[in-house]
């Protein structure tokens, strides 16, 4: 079991990670969800020994990272956010090098290498230089390299950023399969769909704090039975927001451009009231979307912001 206990990291006056604690059980697919700047990458950096925390500790099966870094590192595989390959080397050379770094040699290295190439769907491209790969193929090789030593825990830091849907699906399927085969996966993302699809347990981070943690269903229910209603409008919105906020039917009302978003206990009643209010305004309703309770609505409920909005406005430090 991987235990993160009271991890705290400060950069000058800025608290990047504020006393967070969670556990990841063997065989879990654990999601770390949050907008950019929430502290996800900083947490991962501390978990993998790249960054020294101000306080707190990380343990794997009782072994402290601080005392036995090699023990923990040997059992973890890190997939960094951006491509971390030697571009002028072939896929096979990359895997072979990283295998050597993790102390894998001989027949075991050959077996692992074949397995990694197969999992990444790159067996036919093993002799090709990494720089000649498409973005999706590079992402897949990036993941394969992290698996060359067959780690117990695969730590993935937003591995699907900036790739095409087809490659994204391939990666998600691969991770799902690896987890089914028994590999523990820690997956960070700001895409709630990915975390919902892959993970049984998760933690949601915002501004360095852990705002929710538990099983997927438990976290999803944090938003209550509220649905999230999105309305596409055209014309002058006026004081629509103020009117809705004064009505108890609507919660977490937000207007962004010509899009109105709110939550409601009873979606049908809320939609009906909203339509009548809109009818008295100088704007027209173009489209309505009603979403059942999900991680997005949980995040909205917990922070008063939508996850997608937060992604856009956040800084560099993940």
């Amino acid at each position: 079991m991987l235990e993160v206990e009271s991890l705290h990291k400060r950069f000058g006056q800025h608290v990047a990670v504020d006393n967070i604690s969670f556990q990841v059980k063997k065989g879990d697919a654990f999601g770390l969800l949050g907008p950019n700047g929430a502290g996800k990458s900083t947490t991962l950096s501390m978990m993998t020994g790249l960054l020294i925390p101000n306080s707190g500790e990380v343990r794997l099966d009782g072994h402290r990272l601080k005392d036995e870094p090699k023990y923990l590192k040997q059992r973890m595989g890190l997939v960094p956010q951006s491509i971390a390959l030697y571009e002028n080397l072939t896929a096979e050379e990359n895997l072979r090098f990283w295998g050597q770094i993790y102390g894998v040699t001989g027949a075991k290295l050959r077996d692992n290498l074949d397995w990694c190439l197969q999992v990444a769907g790159l067996t036919e491209h093993r002799k090709q230089l990494a720089k000649r790969f498409s973005g999706g193929m590079q992402r897949r090789l990036n993941i394969a390299v992290a698996m060359i030593h067959r780690p117990e825990i695969l730590i993935m830091d937003e591995p699907t950023v900036g790739i095409d849907p087809q490659s994204r699906n391939h990666i998600l399927e691969t991770v799902k399969t690896l987890n089914r085969e028994g590999m523990t996966v820690i997956y960070t993302s700001h895409y709630m769909e990915e975390v919902q699809y892959l993970c049984q347990r998760l933690a949601i981070m915002d501004n360095g704090e852990l705002i929710a943690y538990g099983n997927l269903e438990d976290v999803r229910q944090l938003a209550g039975a509220r649905s999230t209603i999105t309305m596409q409008l055209s014309g002058e919105i006026g004081d629509l927001t103020r009117q809705l906020e004064h009505d108890m039917t609507f919660q977490n009302v937000q207007v962004e451009g010509d899009t109105l978003v709110f939550q409601a206990q009873n979606a049908a009643v809320a939609v009906s009231r909203a339509v009548s209010i809109i009818a008295n305004q100088s704007c027209e309703l173009q489209k309505i979307d009603v979403a059942q309770p999900n991680l997005e609505s949980a995040f909205l409920h917990l922070t008063g912001r939508r996850l997608r909005d937060s992604v856009g406005e956040a800084g560099d430090q993940g």
């Binding site: 993998t48 590192k73 951006s82 491509i83 971390a84 390959l85 990283w98 993790y102």
Partner: peptide, 13 residues
């Protein structure tokens, strides 16, 4: 400053 260095640091070397 890149992720390849992070990957090296995350290895048991």
């Amino acid at each position: 400053r890149g992720d390849r260095y992070k990957r090296l640091l995350a290895a048991p070397v």
